[in-house]
């Protein structure tokens, strides 16, 4: 767009009024804001000694987990829809024939590169069986890049860790299975 584009409306800067030219009223206004925050309750916490509260864990997008079904098996059916939806290409699945009669295939390996992930939640949304979910775990650290590539076992252990605090979303959020 060029400066002489007809879509642009040029406005003249408003001339300063008396109070603005005096400067003092605005100075007092600023001091008042500072004073208000000095006495109001704090919104920050001393992380990590103190944990921040997550507003709504159901819609928070933290570390992933792979859900288990009633029999404790991985719920994922290896359909690759999360990997297809993923804009960061951080999900890597190897599918194979499942050992169970009621299921056709399952992930032999399921890896998420948590460093590459942008926590957009598209995988959770794409999953047709509500197998992958984002938990409200927010402090994700590791000492190496390899450590931050979560494999199937680790993602299942995240589920075991969080299943009591955060039940599977499918029931409360209209899941398919």
């Amino acid at each position: 767009m060029k400066p002489n584009d007809p879509a642009i409306t040029w406005l003249e800067e408003r001339p300063l009024g008396l109070s603005e030219r005096l400067y003092l009223p605005l100075f007092v206004q600023g001091l008042a804001t500072t004073a208000r925050h000095l006495v109001s309750p704090k919104v920050t916490v001393s992380f990590p000694e103190q944990r921040p509260t997550v507003g709504n864990p159901l819609i928070y997008r933290g570390v992933h987990r792979l859900n288990r079904d009633d029999e404790g098996r991985v719920k994922c059916v290896a359909c690759f829809l999360c990997a297809t939806a993923c804009p960061a290409h951080c999900i890597d699945i190897v599918a194979t024939e499942s050992p169970w009669p009621d299921r056709e295939k399952y992930p032999e390996s399921f890896q998420i590169d948590e460093l590459r992930c942008i926590f957009c939640g598209m995988c959770e949304e794409a999953c047709p069986v509500d197998a992958i979910e984002l938990t409200s775990l927010l402090d994700l650290t590791g000492k190496s890049r390899e450590e931050m590539i979560f494999d199937k076992e680790k993602l299942l252990s995240v589920f075991d860790m969080t299943k009591d605090a955060e039940p599977m979303k499918s029931a409360s959020m209209g899941g398919t299975l």
Binding site: A78, C79, F80, T84, A95, T96, E97, K105
Partner: peptide
Amino acid sequence: FLYQQRVWF
């Protein structure tokens, strides 16, 4: 080819 790759890839 079964289960090897989704065809859209």
